[in-house]
Design a protein around this nucleic acid. Structure first.
Lengths: 141, 141
DNA sequence: TACAATTTAATTGTACACAATTTAATTAAT
DNA sequence: ATTAATTAAATTGTGTACAATTAAATTGTA
């Protein structure tokens, strides 16, 4: 069998596996605030922006409406966001943070430090990883 | 809003996003051999091992039977693998490569080079990334 | 040897991902 | 101003992920 097909010679596989392992580490902390990982990163955008439409949110998260529509309905049912059409362009669905959703950031702000303790990379490794990952993300544009 | 909750200050997010972006780059090539990405990495293990049980396969891929059972049934229906209980221990389901599945590696072996052209990292960056990702994967053990 | 504990897959249920299509609203072109 | 093209979100359908439970086989132990 060709070496290029061995799992240990792939870059894609540890990328995929490490991504899932890190998300798995978030789970116990996210359970405490009743969010999934994808809901958490959507909330991160909202904590920052307060208001955004689905298209823009999708651009930031690399997700489309097929994923976001049900996810945002769930966040609405949890009381963290509101969903309403833009009056200036009815095609746009505006997502707004509720006060309940805003309040959630207090508890959430404790999570990054907790995760840092679980990952165990040096500051330099973390920075290097960050830069290479964004280089990969930049490739497609 | 606290900076630690900004999306651009997370390491987990570019990891998650880059993983999906890379898998997305595989799609047109994997479509040609009628495999999804997860099916592809499962086949990689089989091209290497010829025979393996579900538990071991799950250990290698960081996946459990909830994901693998339906995936392996699909690969069986495509004729690439066979599924049969081990005679020495009926709890174990042995996955074996069929000749059809083995033949598939010829076409598949062309994919890594094609992907390499899409990712555009230097050899050094690729090696650095690989090592850091496996360091993350090693953390949990 | 019984029987409790463990192990392996399968199953069930929830939540993404994402391609492809549909629907409604807006914009562009005639 | 109509109609064609475009855009945004929702919908549909397939395939993962993964927690939790179940069922069957095996192993350990009194």
């Amino acid at each position: 069998m060709k070496d290029c097909l061995k799992l240990e010679n792939q870059l894609c596989f540890p990328l995929y596996a490490a991504s899932r392992e890190v998300i798995r580490k978030y789970k116990p902390f996210l359970d405490e605030i009743n969010l999934t990982y994808t809901q958490y990163i959507a909330m991160m955008v909202l904590w920052d922006m307060k208001e955004i439409n689905v298209k823009e949110l999708g651009n930031k998260l690399y997700l489309d409406s097929g994923t976001l529509t049900p996810l945002l309905k769930t966040l609405e049912s949890k009381g963290y966001i509101s969903r309403s059409r833009s009056s200036s362009d009815e095609r746009n669905l505006m997502i707004c943070l509720t006060s309940e959703g805003s309040k959630l950031s207090e508890k959430a702000s404790l999570i990054p430090a907790k995760i840092g303790k679980c990952i165990c990379l040096s500051d330099e490794e973390a920075m290097t990883l960050y830069n290479i990952l964004y280089k990969i993300l930049g490739n497609g544009e």
